[in-house]
Design a protein around this nucleic acid. Structure first.
Length: 464
RNA sequence: GGCCCCAUCGUCUAGUGGCUAGGACAGCGGGCUUUCAAUCCGCAAGCCGGGGUUCGAUUCCCCGUGGGGCCGCCA
């Protein structure tokens, strides 16, 4: 049987980083098996805006290169279907109307908490046959087993046992007739033909409830995989204050989708010592049985490292295209290759890369004070002036970094100085700072005229 | 509070009834270099604690401890 997995977010308006990981796991497993990966929006609570939410999710999927099969299923559009199953259960005596008010329910809960028990419905209307109280719209509850144990095998955690009395007769339809989460999830998972349900382990306790529904309706159980959560660096639940939780924020911060996916796949899953995985490798190697049981902490260092790795390995033409969103348009630059080769080793994100490029392309508007103190001293002025003269009278072509390097070598030899004597002041003259790509590269990129112009401008500021 | 889940370097993780417990990121040191990076080499860093079982436990069992999750007419 073909593997069918799904991603079933509630419409929050954005895709959470943790959601992307479980979606990725599900997607990989489907693709690995040539199966299907379905998308469903859990919007039984009608207050939420599912159209917008879906758009946000698809946008994020597009960005990372994930897709889904078939049509998106909206639970809000399937209420008739759910109603049919509710009626069926009612008719078969597997569900019943409960006339307990919210106030009564709250009171019961408080009592139980005070006694140190797990709050749960006491089943008082389970076998009720009298006259229902006036003016109360009932909810529908499903009959859960009253004794024994609900057992299932989790593909990651192994056998899970929950005592039946831990699962109460939970509500499957609200007093306004709308169905509730655990009920519709079971029906949809069954009807959509899910074979493997991969989800966060915050759903672990929902599984026995859903099994109650599966059994009542005679549906076949899928395999369940409950993936441990991603916590923050302090081991607490990941929240907005821990940094970006919205997937698209990573795009804005200059991360490559390959890096983010590679980072996420290794959070909770591994394949020996391998760290770098292409999408193809992930698909080929992923198996949910290799997912870790324990929760992991989110620490962005490795993501940054991966991003640097993928930037270094991205073709320059593509980088140029991506950089447009970061305010750098160098697609038509005639030294494109040289420019990116000189900078891509230095930028861990596209944002940093854009900064590096701007540093070279734009003449410095000011010179770093420390750099000036260190570089513009002694005979620096004289050396720079000589260098200009040498560039102006140089007879060979000046195109490649090596061409400029030859000029520098000639200067160093003639004046019998070390490379640093010219290198440092030259660097400050070109970009205003003591860091950055090699001066040979930078001169080749901006060309001889611009080079001379920048040096002249710098020389004018040196007082000695 | 009840129930459930989890536990290897700071972080992500590999691994086994017997290994010098492996890799990666971060950290530190060094090489390369006109700078900063990149890169290369090296160093430091871990089996939560206590009981068992066993010739031998990081590994299997139990109990602690710690962390997480769930306990809605939310999903």
């Amino acid at each position: 049987m073909a593997v069918v997995t799904r991603f079933a977010p509630s419409p929050t308006g954005y895709l959470h980083i943790g959601g992307l990981r479980t979606a990725l796991f599900s997607w990989l497993w489907a693709r690995h098996n040539d199966g299907k990966f379905l998308l469903r929006i859990e919007d039984t609570d009608r207050a939420r805006n599912s159209e917008e939410a879906l758009e946000a999710i698809i946008k994020a999927f597009d960005w990372v290169g994930m897709n889904y099969d078939g049509d998106v299923v909206y639970q809000s559009k399937r209420f008739d279907l759910y109603k049919k199953y509710i009626d069926q259960l009612l008719e078969e005596g597997k569900a019943y109307r409960c006339y307990m008010s919210k106030e009564e329910l709250d009171a019961l809960r408080e009592e139980q908490m005070a006694r140190g028990e797990r709050p749960r419905y006491d089943g008082r209307y389970r076998d009720f046959e009298g006259t229902p109280p006036e003016g109360v719209e009932p909810v529908i509850r499903i009959k859960a087993p009253r004794e024994g144990t609900i057992t299932f095998v989790d593909g990651i955690k192994g056998e899970i046992n929950i005592a039946a009395d831990e699962v109460d007769d939970f509500i499957i339809a609200r007093s306004d007739g709308t169905p509730t989460y655990n009920f519709v999830v079971s029906i949809d998972d069954a009807l959509m033909g899910l074979t493997d349900v991969i989800r966060g382990d915050d759903h672990l306790y929902n599984t026995p409830k859903q099994i109650v529904v599966y059994n009542a309706l005679g549906f076949k159980l899928p395999k369940f995989y409950h993936v441990a959560m991603i916590n923050n660096e302090q081991g607490k639940k990941l929240s907005k204050r821990d940094g970006a939780t919205d997937v698209m924020e990573y795009k804005a911060m200059g991360y490559l989708p390959e890096a983010l996916l590679n980072f996420l796949v290794r959070l909770g899953w591994s394949h020996g010592d391998q760290e770098i995985f292409s999408l193809e490798e992930m698909i080929a190697l992923f198996d949910p049985k290799d997912i870790n049981k324990s929760a992991s902490s989110y620490s962005p260092d490795k993501l940054l490292w991966l991003n640097a790795h993928y930037i270094k390995n991205t073709p320059n033409a593509k980088l140029a295209e991506l950089l447009k969103e970061f305010g750098v348009d160098i697609a038509d630059h005639d030294r494109l290759e040289m420019l990116l080769d000189a900078t891509k080793e230095r930028g861990k994100t596209l944002v940093e890369l854009a900064e590096q490029i701007n540093l070279i392309l734009n003449a410095p508007t000011q010179y770093d004070a420390k750099a000036v103190k260190k570089a513009f001293k002694g005979e620096a002025k004289e050396i720079l002036v000589d260098f200009i003269a040498m560039l102006q009278t140089w007879e060979k072509p000046l195109h490649l970094p090596s061409d400029y390097h030859a000029v520098l070598e000639a200067l160093v030899a003639e004046k019998e100085i070390g490379f640093g004597k010219i290198g440092m002041p030259l660097r400050v003259a070109l970009v205003g700072a003591l860091t950055g790509p090699g001066v040979d590269e930078m001169m080749a990129i901006i060309g001889v005229d611009e080079t001379i112009e920048r040096i002249e401008k710098a020389v004018a500021t040196i007082e000695v």
